[in-house]
């Protein structure tokens, strides 16, 4: 197999992603190590495409000078990356090769990389290429699994630091200020809040199925209701919502930052957990996915 690949990135990062990748393999019943190269490349690559080299030593992007390290390709299949610039199948793109001069016009390869420029056309900075037809064919089925492993990365990270993981149904939602009033605490803000004010809301969530940690029958969850740029992609809870919850404690830094909002005082008075990242709430259909991810890191460690 002619595989143009060099490992990059810190060990800890690779380990974490390897955990996600292995978890995907375990979930599929495959043994790890069978397609490690493609896995490692996919882990580092937001874009994975099969393509034919239209012109070597060429570039479609004005800011990338044509050189032996660049080539113009025509994409025949997209494994990953359509979120970035849409489906590029049939379109040309410029690639900055991981090894200059490694591909010739007419040659087919699977390209693993990240977006470098998005101008009139896409320019991909390659992490690596698998040029051999046989190797690419062997790797193809596993690439999709590793693409999923990359998508799982944020969830894996949140699972690693979670206090509780459970499936539950939201019973009530109320503003933190109202919750404070219920506990006799004065209104937290002495003045009007910041533009990035989280607008904390308190939800009570009935636990349907614990997945990790010892959750009682009902868990108090605090979440930001703000539509500010910083918070709007964090899931907003509503009464009756059935979801997978990946809850967290406040880190010391977060506690310091949100002290003035009354959140810390609230959490000091009663057991409560926060959700503050997009991956902290997932649809109920992701239960099997989360179970698989929960089991994998422990086995790797």
């Amino acid at each position: 197999m002619k595989n143009i690949w060099r490992p990059r990135g810190p060990v800890s990062r690779r380990l974490l992603i390897a955990a996600a990748a292995v978890s995907a393999l375990l979930a599929s019943g495959r043994a790890p190590g069978q397609d490690d190269d493609a896995a490692a490349l996919t882990e580092r690559s937001a874009i994975v495409v099969r393509a034919k080299v239209v012109k070597a030593n060429a570039s479609n992007e004005p800011m990338v000078a044509a050189s032996p390290g660049t080539a113009v390709i025509r994409i025949t299949k997209m494994y990953a990356g359509s979120e970035i610039a849409g489906d590029q199948t049939g379109k040309t793109a410029t690639v900055i090769l991981s090894r200059p001069g490694s591909l010739k016009a007419g040659q087919e390869a699977t390209f693993f990389g990240n977006p470098r420029f998005m101008g009139k056309t896409l320019t991909i900075a390659d992490e690596g290429e698998i040029a051999s037809r046989d190797a690419a064919s062997r790797a193809a089925p596993s690439i999709e699994r590793h693409v999923q492993a990359r998508r799982d990365k944020p969830v894996v990270e949140r699972l690693a630091s979670a206090t509780l993981v459970f499936r539950g149904v939201v019973e009530t939602v109320r503003p933190l200020a109202a919750a404070d009033a219920a506990t006799g605490e004065s209104k937290p803000y002495p003045t009007r809040p910041s533009e990035h004010d989280p607008d904390w809301q308190v939800a009570t969530v009935k636990v349907v199925k614990p997945l990790r940690g010892e959750a009682g029958p009902v868990v108090t969850v605090v979440f930001p209701a703000s539509r500010d740029i910083v918070w709007f992609n964090v899931p907003k809870l509503r009464q009756g919502q059935d979801s997978i919850f990946i809850t967290h404690a406040l880190s010391p830094e977060e506690a310091a930052r949100h002290r003035a909002s009354g959140l810390v005082a609230f959490m000091d008075k009663q057991p409560a957990h926060v959700i503050i990242e997009p991956s902290d709430v997932l649809p109920p259909g992701d239960e099997a996915r989360v179970r698989g991810l929960l089991s994998a890191p422990k086995e790797v460690k």
Partner: peptide
Amino acid sequence: TDRGLTWALANVVPSKIGAGFPTG
């Protein structure tokens, strides 16, 4: 590089996979 006639996106600002916002 042509005084604003054409523009391209260059991915240069440190961010994070899974982050809810690209940069503040």
